[in-house]
Design a protein around this nucleic acid. Structure first.
Length: 294
DNA sequence: CACCCGTGGGA
DNA sequence: TTCCCAAGGGT
């Protein structure tokens, strides 16, 4: 063992084991192995903060209806928000629609392969740009999501959880852990390991292919002294209120009278504030007759 | 950088 | 039942 978090031999073994494990244990997912960058982009937006199981049915319906960026761009953004259903964070649907418009207008209808071009798309941040470039185009990028961060924190740093915010030091570590060859497979494999084995709660270390290389496991899986996060209040928040309003608007194909929205939330002041914010966000439209729609 | 932005299922 | 948290992004 060297002073650094992992020496070259450790990393070689880590790569080899995780890739071999991935070969045998990778889930079959509809956005994998399809040679369709649009499908990859759609899946990545849907998977932002939303579990795979809930994304699956929405993804299938979405791709059947909008098989290309141009097909989505040709429909109103409100239809995208409606089709998003209850995946949560409906602005992601709005941004995916905006991305489809940008791809249609500026990239000839083809999802760009360039990382910088991807990053410029609405709803695409550092993680998603790297993920699409990696998974859809086989490029070499550090794909640093919550799963990979947790795997690296445990295996290389011996920490139960990654830090609250992503530091430059952590990014350097991930860059150092990225293999020269098969980087895109490492990205997918390390993410999958974090999702299926090296989970946030109740990690399955007995099934882990790299338990004997893991600093956290070697240290006896120590838990941090203080909880890494403070639980956030939910009941009564603007987010809950906005969610109620959006749910009503999704259910109705046409427009919704104000009284239908008023029935969703008792506190009129908060309700009006939230409705205003939804209008500001462009998620809701108000019509001349005073009715509302997506 | 801290905070805001939905939703529902599992422990 | 309460609480955690899931392939983040934008401001």
């Amino acid at each position: 063992m060297s002073d650094s978090p992992a020496n070259g031999a450790d990393l070689d073994a880590l790569h080899e084991r995780v890739l071999a494990w991935f070969e045998e244990n990778a889930r079959v997912l509809p956005w994998r192995g399809v040679d369709d960058p649009w499908a990859v982009l759609v899946s990545e937006l849907m998977l932002q903060q939303t579990p795979v199981a809930r994304v699956l049915p929405v993804f299938e319906a979405w791709m059947a209806r909008w098989p290309t960026p141009a097909s989505l761009a040709a429909d109103p953004a409100g239809e995208a928000v409606r089709a998003w259903g209850r995946l949560g964070y409906p602005r992601r649907a709005q941004r995916l629609h905006a991305a489809a418009v940008a791809i249609t207008e500026h990239h000839g209808g083809e999802v760009p392969s360039d990382h910088a071009a991807l990053l410029a798309l609405p709803g695409v941040g550092e993680y998603t740009a790297a993920a699409v470039a990696s998974f859809a185009f086989g490029q070499r990028h550090v794909v640093l999501d919550t799963n990979v961060r947790r795997v690296l924190a445990r295996v290389l740093l011996g920490q139960a959880h990654p830090a609250r915010s992503l530091t430059a030091s952590e990014r350097r570590l991930a860059d150092r852990a990225l293999p020269r060859a098969d980087a895109h497979r490492w990205a997918a494999a390390s993410m999958e390991l974090g999702a299926l084995v090296c989970t946030a709660r109740s990690p399955r270390c007995t099934e882990c292919p790299v338990a004997d290389l893991c600093r956290w496991f070697a240290a006896g899986r120590p838990e941090p002294d203080e909880p890494v996060r403070r639980s956030q209040a939910w009941t009564g928040t603007d987010r809950q209120c906005r969610g109620r309003l959006m749910a009503v608007l999704r259910e109705h194909e046409g427009t919704v009278p104000k009284v239908a929205l008023d029935a969703t939330w008792d506190d009129a002041t908060q309700r009006e504030r939230c409705l205003d914010s939804l209008l500001d966000d462009g998620l809701v439209t108000v019509h001349p007759d005073g009715t509302f729609s997506l």
